[in-house]
């Protein structure tokens, strides 16, 4: 079921929602791509539909709304620790099925792996999903292989068509529209050009295989694959003091990546997985094996952003398929 409303009416509706929600959606930032005259599609606050980039895949996933890249945990002064104030609005997030599944993975790590993370939980409770439909698969997508192409975990969905927008509402909280109701459910991509099959049992023997050596020479350890990934969830802690007043400071956490130097460095000099091939193994095993052992399904949601972003053209999809063929040969 969906309301058929004009674009103008839809923007009015967003304006009404804005009283209660901060609305985030993928926005094309002109000229903000790494290369000259290229754009970057990232999550930004929006006020009207025209600002939303619906035609291409966002370069960065929606995760940064729940898991800020730099997040202050505490402010300190001489003797006190204060937690940062969080805005009291809820969050409406425009995102695709794969990213909704991605947030489910973040939930597992932040709410179910050991104790609950209080900072994540605050954001998570606020977030409502507005599903962006995918009409066809983008480059490198393999959501169908990962079973993340379909979702019913959305609070609303939209389908802009000409001057109209179909608005499906799945959660009363999102309010009502007065317009005509039509019978409509969201469309999902049912197959992708890229297909990935994950071997059922990635044996530890394989984990030690020379297979990974190739990546030592190819991977440059930049971490782009992690930072664009909707499910990479690691962070590092940082304490700083303010230059202006050395008595005050803050404790933060910032995103980090197992692909980047320093991830395992311990004070005193020990570190592990020094070769990029070992880091690739660690990351791939996490996405396609380790995580599943804990939570019952693969961590990777097949959004293909790591493959989109790798400056060295390393494909995780290709890697997984190669692993499969090695396992089957054995």
């Amino acid at each position: 079921m969906a309301y058929k409303v004009t674009g103008i009416r839809f923007n009015q509706y967003l304006k009404e929602l804005e009283k209660e929600y901060l609305i985030f959606a993928p926005v094309a930032l002109l000229g903000k791509g790494a290369f000259t005259n290229t754009d970057s599609v990232r999550y930004q606050k929006i006020t009207k539909l025209e600002e939303v980039e619906l035609t291409i895949k966002a370069n960065f996933s929606a995760k940064e709304i729940l898991l800020p890249i730099t997040e202050t945990l505490f402010y300190f002064n001489e003797d006190n620790w204060t937690e940062p104030k969080v805005h009291d609005k809820k969050i409406l997030l425009f995102l695709r099925s794969c990213d909704i599944h991605g947030i489910k993975r973040l939930d597992d790590i932040y709410l179910r792996n050991g104790c609950e993370d209080p900072y994540y939980k605050v954001f998570r409770k606020k977030v409502r999903f507005c599903l962006i439909e995918c009409y066809e698969s983008f480059a490198n997508c393999f959501c169908a292989s990962m079973g993340t192409n379909i979702t019913d975990e959305y609070d609303m969905f939209i389908r802009p068509e000409g001057d109209y927008v179909y608005v499906g509402i799945n959660n009363k909280e999102m309010g009502r529209l007065d317009e005509k109701v039509v019978d409509l459910s969201p469309r999902f991509v049912m197959q992708n050009k890229t297909k990935v099959s994950i071997p059922k049992e990635l044996s530890k023997g394989l984990a030690q295989s020379v297979f990974w050596e190739e990546y030592s020479s190819r991977c440059i350890g930049c971490g782009r694959c992690s930072f664009v990934c909707p499910t990479c969830s690691c962070f590092s802690m940082q304490d700083i003091f303010y230059k202006e007043n050395k008595n005050m400071g803050e404790r933060r956490r910032v995103w980090s990546s197992c692909m980047v130097d320093g991830f395992t460095d311990m004070a005193g000099g020990h570190s592990f997985r020094k070769k990029q091939g070992d880091r690739m193994r660690f990351r791939v095993m996490h996405k396609f094996h380790d995580y599943k052992k804990r939570f019952g399904y693969h961590m990777c949601v097949g959004c293909g952003r790591c493959d989109d972003a790798c400056p060295e053209y390393i494909s995780i999809a290709h890697c997984a398929n190669r692993l499969k063929s090695i396992v089957e040969e054995k």
Binding site: K32, T36, R42, C222, V260
Partner: peptide, 28 residues
Amino acid sequence: NFKVVRHSDKCIGCGECVLKCPTGAWTR
């Protein structure tokens, strides 16, 4: 302090920082 400070008098505007940045913290 865990962040990057750019000395504009030294910077030659080559764009290398933008190219290397994996998170888009540096942009053009």
